[in-house]
Amino acid sequence: MFRDEDFALLARPLYAFLTVAPRGGRWPAPRPVWFEVTDDGDVQMFSLLDAPKLDRLREHPRASVVVAAPPGEPEHWVSVEGAVTLHDEGGAELAARLADRYWDTSSPNHQKFRDEWAASTVVRIVVHPEVVNRFSA
């Protein structure tokens, strides 16, 4: 479902904005997350077990993800909508891999977070694309 220019954007350490179904009378509120595209073309990210978004994803296992080029570059974004699966396995490994992608992991503060994630239950969130939209200037 992704084009070559989509993969070029998605391979960069940019934030994705994850939107899940809201609770009660609230409006959807996207959250910035780290992500990677799997070999199967899914988009995966991680969360700690007690995050409210996981409860909402269990109730409504669908989400959207948007990734955009930063200001100063030609406008380019990719939007993905699809079903979500949650996985207890692979979350800590994904968190460590993404920390290496997004951070200078030699920083003691960053290493502290990695250690906390390794000692916690980290859930892997996988969005299976059903619809992909894009714009490239």
Rank of each mutant, 00 (worst) to 15 (best):
18 L>K: 05
18 L>C: 04
19 T>F: 00
19 T>P: 00
20 V>M: 12
20 V>F: 12
21 A>K: 15
22 P>C: 02
24 G>V: 10
25 G>N: 12
26 R>K: 15
27 W>H: 12
29 A>N: 09
29 A>K: 07
35 F>S: 08
36 E>I: 11
36 E>H: 12
40 D>R: 15
43 V>L: 15
45 M>H: 09
45 M>E: 10
45 M>D: 11
46 F>W: 11
46 F>Q: 07
46 F>I: 06
47 S>M: 11
47 S>H: 12
49 L>V: 14
49 L>M: 12
51 A>N: 10
52 P>K: 03
53 K>F: 05
54 L>N: 00
57 L>C: 02
57 L>W: 01
59 E>G: 08
59 E>W: 07
64 S>Y: 01
65 V>L: 09
67 V>K: 07
67 V>E: 10
67 V>H: 09
70 P>D: 04
70 P>Y: 04
71 P>R: 13
72 G>L: 06
73 E>N: 06
73 E>F: 10
76 H>W: 13
77 W>Q: 08
77 W>K: 06
78 V>R: 00
78 V>T: 06
78 V>D: 02
80 V>S: 01
81 E>K: 06
82 G>H: 10
82 G>D: 11
83 A>G: 12
85 T>N: 05
87 H>P: 08
88 D>S: 13
89 E>C: 09
90 G>P: 07
90 G>Q: 08
91 G>W: 06
91 G>L: 05
92 A>V: 10
92 A>S: 10
92 A>H: 03
93 E>N: 06
93 E>C: 04
94 L>T: 14
96 A>H: 13
97 R>G: 01
98 L>S: 12
98 L>D: 14
99 A>M: 03
100 D>H: 04
101 R>G: 01
102 Y>G: 04
102 Y>T: 07
106 S>H: 11
109 N>G: 15
110 H>Q: 06
111 Q>A: 15
112 K>I: 03
113 F>S: 05
114 R>E: 05
116 E>F: 14
117 W>S: 07
117 W>H: 13
117 W>F: 15
118 A>G: 13
118 A>P: 10
118 A>S: 15
118 A>I: 13
120 S>N: 02
121 T>E: 04
122 V>T: 03
122 V>F: 03
123 V>Q: 02
123 V>G: 07
126 V>Y: 03
126 V>C: 12
126 V>I: 08
129 P>E: 01
131 V>P: 07
131 V>W: 11
